[in-house]
Each structure stands twice: as structure tokens, then as C-alpha cells.
């Protein structure tokens, strides 16, 4: 590849990038197949898999009944028996019907069998709020899954990661859950060509800065970047860290950032109690307490089921204003 082509890029959407990733995976490996509710004839609830049924046929782009535990368990079994299934659970809200297969099945088979079996399964699911879908369709429960040894959990938050995380996930011999925030599918961004599978062990600094670290993931990344832009207008240089991998957390990258900025705001759409933000805050307090010049701040969802009306939903979720205010507080407070 020439240097010129190596630096070229096209602008595309997160949705299209995710589709390209699926198409490439299906084309590259006959063991790979996609299965889930409405992935085929309907084209995917979020239109991610549109067109793939025609390209790859109904055996490999496999519509399932509304049987979350059934088809996630089928993914576990197929993975244990030599296939590389990609299971799409329409949203994390419905994944609650498949928790047994994910937590008692996928996560434990290697361990219970003393390493004889493994589950090379990829589960994709939409997550998050912001579309006025009300309480039962707006959960952010990434941390529940990130709690479980045996699972790898990641959250592509950029167009490039939407395109390239899947290949790394499929190459992993163990189960990987990819959380795609519903607010990101329409996101436009640059897709450098040629791309390469991403490192599913490392967080990424999306915006370097010196004054405060904004650590986040998934659907909150664009908000954190906008907050950093606002802060820059008043002379505050915020660093934005995208965790990308929620289990295992890349705490080295977070600690390195805090060591540069000495202030930390963690932004997470989970409810504050038991959130991933709490885990990041605790880890930084353990590992980098003496680097901190101000108390750690968290911007999370308010502890209320997500309400339907727009103004109440907005008030329940992390906002750019709340991130800006939390970052300013770390600069104004402290010793």
C-alpha cells in the first residue's frame, strides 16, 4: 500500500461502518454467521444488516424467533462446536432475557471445563437512551456484563471502531460483547483507508489535554468531546479518554491521563450507583490518589427510570452542560 493511499479517508456513518464490518467478516470466514431478531428480511432494527441477507443467504444471515435465551444459547453451542457466530440482541433491554446464557453459559464454559472448551462468540447489542423510548427500552447496563469474569466487553464509540472492532472480537477465542449506543448509528466520521483491526485491550485518548481528564465510553463520547470544546473556549484544556474496552479496563491509560492532568471526571450513562464510573473512580483512587488535585467527579444518569418526555429524559442523562460544570468544579475546588 502506498503512503498516499495509507492516509486517505472516506466519510461514512457509524451504521454503514458496522455493516461493512459484518460484510467483511461474513466474506472472510465461512464459520461466521449472523443471527438475531430481524437481522435478515427486516434488515436489522437499526438497519445495520440491511442487504446482507441477499448477499449471504438465510443460513448465514439468520432471522430468529423472539427467543433471546434460545438463540443466544444457540450461539454459545455453535461457538463451542467450531462456528464463529455473531449474535445480535436487538437491545440490551432484551438481553435481560438471555442473562442465563451469557453469564452462566458463555462466561463460564472455559472455566468449568478446565480450559477444554471455549466460546468464541460475539454478541452485538444496542444500548442506551436518548430516543424517547421510555423506561423499558432505554437501559444502559454495560457494567453488569463488565462485572463478569470470562466476558470481554467493548463499546465502539467512533466510526473507525464500528468498522474495526468486530474483526478483533471474532478473532478472540472467548466471548466478546459489543455495545453499540443507539445515539451513535447516525454519527458521521472519517474512516481511514486502509484500516486495521483495533487493539481490544487499550483505551484511546480521543483529545489530548492538560487540565482535566474526561473519561468515558460509548454514547457519552460525543458529549465529552463537545464538553471539551466548550471548555477550550474558556481556556480549559481537557483530555478525553475513550475507554473502548469495559472489561478488562485499560486502567494504565486512565492513570497516565490523570497523572498528566491531576483531575478526573468520569462520564457514564449508567445510573451512578454501581456504575462503571464508580469502578474507574475507585481504581484511580487506589492507583493514583496522590496525583489528584481535586475530588473525582462522576456524571451519570439520575437514579430514575428513563422517562418518556424529552425534557425529562434529557434531564435524566449526562449532558454536555453537566460535564462542563463537573470539569470546572474540579478546577475550582481542590486543595
Amino acid at each position: 500500500m502506498s503512503a498516499a493511499s495509507a492516509t486517505s479517508a472516506t466519510t461514512t456513518t457509524y451504521r454503514e461502518a458496522a455493516r461493512q464490518a459484518l460484510r467483511a467478516a461474513l466474506a472472510a470466514d465461512p464459520r461466521v454467521f449472523l443471527m438475531g431478531e430481524d437481522v435478515g428480511a427486516y434488515g436489522g432494527t437499526y438497519a445495520v444488516s440491511r442487504g446482507l441477507l441477499d448477499e449471504f443467504g438465510p443460513a448465514r444471515v439468520r432471522d430468529t424467533p423472539l427467543s433471546e435465551s434460545g438463540f443466544v444459547g444457540a450461539g454459545v453451542g455453535a461457538a463451542m462446536n467450531g462456528m464463529r457466530p455473531i449474535v445480535e440482541i436487538m437491545t440490551v433491554n432484551f438481553a435481560l432475557l438471555a442473562l442465563d446464557q451469557l453469564v452462566n453459559g458463555a462466561a463460564l464454559m472455559r472455566h468449568m471445563s478446565g480450559g477444554q472448551f471455549h466460546v468464541p462468540l460475539v454478541v452485538r447489542m444496542a444500548t442506551g437512551a436518548g430516543r424517547q423510548l421510555a423506561a423499558q427500552h432505554s437501559h444502559s447496563l454495560e457494567g453488569w456484563f463488565a462485572h463478569v469474569p470470562g466476558l470481554r466487553v467493548a463499546a465502539p464509540a467512533t466510526v473507525e471502531d464500528a468498522r474495526w472492532m468486530l474483526a478483533t472480537a471474532l478473532a478472540d477465542p472467548d466471548p466478546v460483547i459489543l455495545f453499540e449506543h443507539v445515539g451513535l448509528y447516525g454519527l458521521e466520521g472519517e474512516l481511514p483507508e486502509p484500516g486495521a483491526p483495533v487493539d481490544l485491550t487499550r483505551a484511546a485518548v480521543r483529545r489530548p489535554g492538560t487540565d482535566v481528564s474526561l473519561v468515558t465510553y460509548g454514547g457519552s463520547l460525543p458529549k465529552a468531546l463537545r464538553a471539551a470544546a466548550h471548555l477550550a473556549e474558556t481556556g480549559v484544556d481537557a483530555e478525553v479518554v475513550d475507554l473502548r474496552v469495559l472489561r478488562p479496563l485499560d486502567l494504565d491509560t486512565v492513570v497516565a491521563s490523570v497523572t498528566r492532568t491531576h483531575r478526573l471526571v468520569v462520564i457514564d450513562e449508567m445510573w451512578r450507583t454501581g456504575s462503571l464510573a464508580g469502578e474507574v473512580a475507585a481504581a484511580v483512587a487506589e492507583r493514583a490518589f496522590y496525583q489528584l488535585d481535586a475530588p473525582i467527579a462522576r456524571v451519570c444518569s439520575v437514579e430514575v427510570p428513563i422517562p418518556y418526555p424529552k425534557h425529562l429524559e434529557d434531564a435524566a442523562l449526562p449532558t454536555v452542560d453537566a460535564i462542563v460544570a463537573a470539569a470546572r468544579a474540579t478546577l475550582e475546588g481542590g486543595p
Binding site: S69, G73, G77, N81
Partner: peptide
């Protein structure tokens, strides 16, 4: 469900 997947 795992048996279904093994057979699939």
C-alpha cells in the same frame, strides 16, 4: 439452547 447450537 446450547444443544440447539451444537446441532446448528
Amino acid at each position: 439452547p446450547v444443544a440447539v447450537g451444537l446441532a446448528l
